[in-house]
Amino acid sequence: MKTVIVKYNAGNIRSVQFALERIGVNGIVTDDETEIRSADKVIFPGVGEASTAMQYLKERKLDQVIKNLKQPVLGICLGMQLMCSHSEENDTPCMGIFETPVKKFTSPVENLLKIPQIGWNNITNLHSVLFEHVPENSYMYFVHSYYAALGADTVAITNYVINYSSALQKDNFYAVQFHPEKSAEAGARIIENFLNI
């Protein structure tokens, strides 16, 4: 099985590669279209800023490559947000794989909300093969200031002042807002589930 990690100007690529290595899988880091198209599984990671990342992907036509993939694709964090319709982060049109918009967390008047959300939060209403043998309310590691709203493609919900999509799924596209590569054993299980699709 060939597992590819899409290389672009985003952080956490190394962490994803190490997480694969810990479960005995060699992840090939590449931005080559042919390599990506020929993979059995594609992981689209991401830590960074939406407009810069989208611009980088567009310049290399990687946005079109990713959008047209037929094999299972897993977006992580910013990767997930870029697969959505639009991000409020610098008003960025994204790939539109999921119809969900991406919004910024806002502090309610009555209490101070810390932004970004940093830390472990639980995932609920799990409806995806990604979560096989992952119990309801499992804790995952999140670091983000923007979130995907709830919608038709929501397959996991997390609450940080409001309920939002902590995972999305549509056809062959899967995406998680948290970092499975940093979420201890439960996160490793999700990566394994993805590789077993």
Partner: peptide, 11 residues
């Protein structure tokens, strides 16, 4: 740091 990242599965 590389070796820590390789072996430790939390941030």
């Amino acid at each position: 740091v590389t070796e820590i990242a390789r072996h430790v599965n939390i941030p």
